[in-house]
């Protein structure tokens, strides 16, 4: 009887997942003004330092006919979502799991362990979309103000929902790492070996396609590369090729999503 209970996989219930998401948004609504500021400010730093500072040294003509600032701005939307969802699914989730023991309390209610994980995915995605929407608005206004349009297509209205999906993808990855570690210090590995390389080599700051093989091929198999493509295409007017990137993100997320659910259930229920 119990053997099947232990190993048989359970799908999250939408209702239970929603309750977990709702708990997080309740807390977020109390503190959002203080929480959101650094997240909006950080990409602006990159934009200023790299876009304007480094961009000044980049030959006239820029990249793909765009100035350097125009080139990197949409990519920073994608990395911003990655960072938002990654912090949520690593440090924040770890604290709720091991330190505050919030999940232990939740799973004694009709909300199950699998609902907790799915709710956290959804929340990390929401957070990424919220930050990204704020950043998108700032980019649009800056572009108009400085007469150097950063967001030029109405397709950009699809960026927030895509950031939700991108956020969920990085939440699944972060939660997978969280479900495997015992100590909070180990996140240094995740950020140094996964998040930072993705940030640097996913085509935000330079086109990876121009690198010799196998760099472009390797990049194709990493998640932020596709997220950057999607954001850049939507910001400037997409080509049909963007559908491949969207499909990649959806398939990768779906394929990986159940694994952390399983591992987390094992951690919460002995």
């Amino acid at each position: 009887m119990s053997k099947t209970n232990r190993t048989s996989f359970r799908l999250p219930s939408p209702r239970g997942s929603f309750r977990v998401w709702q708990r997080n948004i309740t807390i977020f609504r109390k503190y959002w003004k203080t929480i959101m500021f650094p997240n909006l400010f950080e990409p602006l730093l990159y934009l200023a330092a790299l876009g304007l500072g480094l961009g000044a040294f980049i030959q006239e003509g820029g990249i793909d006919g765009r100035s350097y600032v125009q080139y990197i701005a949409p990519g920073l939307l994608a990395s911003n979502a990655m960072f938002a969802a990654s912090f949520e699914s690593t440090f924040n989730t770890f604290v709720k799991l091991k330190i505050d023991r919030i999940y232990d309390a939740i799973i004694t209610t009709p909300v199950n362990a699998e609902d907790v994980v799915a709710g956290e995915y959804l929340w990390a995605g929401t957070r990424a979309a919220l930050y990204g929407t704020g950043f998108l608005a700032v980019l649009t206004i800056l572009g108009i103000a400085f007469d150097e349009p950063l967001i030029v297509s109405f397709w950009a209205l699809l960026i927030p929902p895509m950031l939700l999906v991108i956020g969920i993808m990085f939440s699944v990855m972060g939660t997978l790492f969280t479900s495997l570690i015992e100590r909070i210090d180990l996140y240094a590995y995740y950020f140094t070996l996964v998040v930072t390389p993705l940030f640097l080599f996913s085509g935000i700051f330079f086109p990876v396609e121009d690198f010799p093989a196998p760099v472009p091929q390797v990049a194709w198999f990493t998640p932020l590369y596709h997220a950057v493509n999607v954001c850049r295409e939507l910001a400037t007017g997409p080509s049909p090729a963007v559908l491949v990137d969207v499909a990649w993100i959806l398939i990768f997320t779906a394929a990986l999503a159940l694994l952390p659910i399983r591992f987390m259930r094992r951690r919460l229920i002995s």
């Binding site: 239970g16 309740t26 807390i27 505050d100 232990d104 309390a105 939740i106 004694t108 209610t109």
Partner: peptide, 30 residues
Amino acid sequence: KRRIGVVPQENNLDDDLKVKENLLVYGRYF
């Protein structure tokens, strides 16, 4: 789980929520 109430050995109240909110949010789980 819908029919039982649990007082755990170790405190796992939600520190991000006020006293009253702890009960309000917990009620939503049901």
